[in-house]
Write a protein that binds this DNA or RNA. Sequence first.
DNA 1: TCGATATTTCTACAAATATCGAAATAAAGG
DNA 2: CCTTTATTTCGATATTTGTAGAAATATCGA
Lengths: 116, 116
Amino acid sequence: MDADIVIKALGALAQEHRLAAFRLLVQAGASGLPAGVLAERLGVPNSSLSFHLAQLSHAGLIRQERQGRSLIYSADYAAMSGLIGYLMENCCAGAACGSDTESGCAPATSDERKIA
Amino acid sequence: MDADIVIKALGALAQEHRLAAFRLLVQAGASGLPAGVLAERLGVPNSSLSFHLAQLSHAGLIRQERQGRSLIYSADYAAMSGLIGYLMENCCAGAACGSDTESGCAPATSDERKIA
DNA sequence: TCGATATTTCTACAAATATCGAAATAAAGG
DNA sequence: CCTTTATTTCGATATTTGTAGAAATATCGA
């Protein structure tokens, strides 16, 4: 996953309605949710939500599939894995997933990681 | 870490220069880097970078400390941990950090996580 | 105090983003 | 074919973001 895609994904999630929509889709699992249900649950007009779903879709974080009259959206877990993987590798001193409550992100033991 | 802060942090990282700057700061470790060095390495005018650093700072992802004439910036690993933790918990079906190469993000075993 | 260095704040403007009603498109069922 | 339902695209507008030169601020050393 290269930086360009990461930036797009981060930007896609960096908005109230989009983050909320994505969370709902993650909760919904593989079966996903139709656009209308998302709009209703989020309290956002259909046309507005459509705009946001397009952004998430364009960032590769969700997928669209028609089912009769409805368009079912679902989270793309692989993309999210890729994003988190990138953040842990590149923005977290490599370390991650070790500590108990926290997710890791070790401070590189003082200054062993100097500018070199 | 609540959604509002997460959105700010995601937005702060969702920009070419800011993501690059943050990566440099993570690599630099606890000793950090002065603003001028960052600007030079990124090939961005000082005033522009200053704007971006302010955003990262306002999102709580980096810290500023004066050292003589220079302002040294350094990554806040705890904030990054918090961000990644949030993403794994809320945007990743809970699962994470299990698989080999990937960072996890399990698809909730088919449809056991229906809308309910 | 003066000059050099490091960095920010100010300012102005171009570009991207968010919002949402209205019109257009797609599918299903008479 | 026409109507209803589900959703997107269009259009207009308000807001936010990104950019970078010029001026201001802070620190150091002579």
